[in-house]
């Protein structure tokens, strides 16, 4: 285990998440992609903390912020989806773009 292996793991998770966020149509699935990307941030933050500056708490704080971010993203995502759904019965992004007119 080195810093590099941890960062490679983070890169892989980020890439998968990016693929999901770009390719999926369902709002829920896009959120899953975003969550995977935040997960990559968590792994990278923890690795930097341990392998670069373990004496300082900044790395840990980054992880905590990422976890919070995930909760916020999730709650807002579902709230927005529910609001959109209520007005127009749509749960896909492609259909949501048509709401403009």
């Amino acid at each position: 285990m080195t810093l590099q292996t941890f960062l490679l793991l983070a890169c892989a998770l980020l890439a998968i998440g990016l693929y999901g966020a770009l390719s999926q149509q369902s709002i829920v699935m896009i959120m899953m992609g975003l969550e995977l990307m935040v997960n990559a941030v968590i792994v990278a933050g923890a690795a930097f903390w341990y392998y670069v500056s373990p004496a300082r708490p900044d790395g840990q704080v980054v992880v905590l912020v990422a976890v919070t971010l995930m909760a916020v993203e999730m709650a807002m995502g579902f709230a927005v989806q529910t609001a959109i759904f209520r007005s127009s019965e749509v749960d896909m992004t492609d259909m949501a773009t048509e709401l403009k007119d």
Binding site: L9, A46, A47, W49, V63
Partner: peptide
């Protein structure tokens, strides 16, 4: 992905 965190000693996180 959380298990490697535990390996680094970040048990709480």
């Amino acid at each position: 992905a959380a298990v490697p965190l535990l390996l680094l000693g970040l048990s709480y996180l």
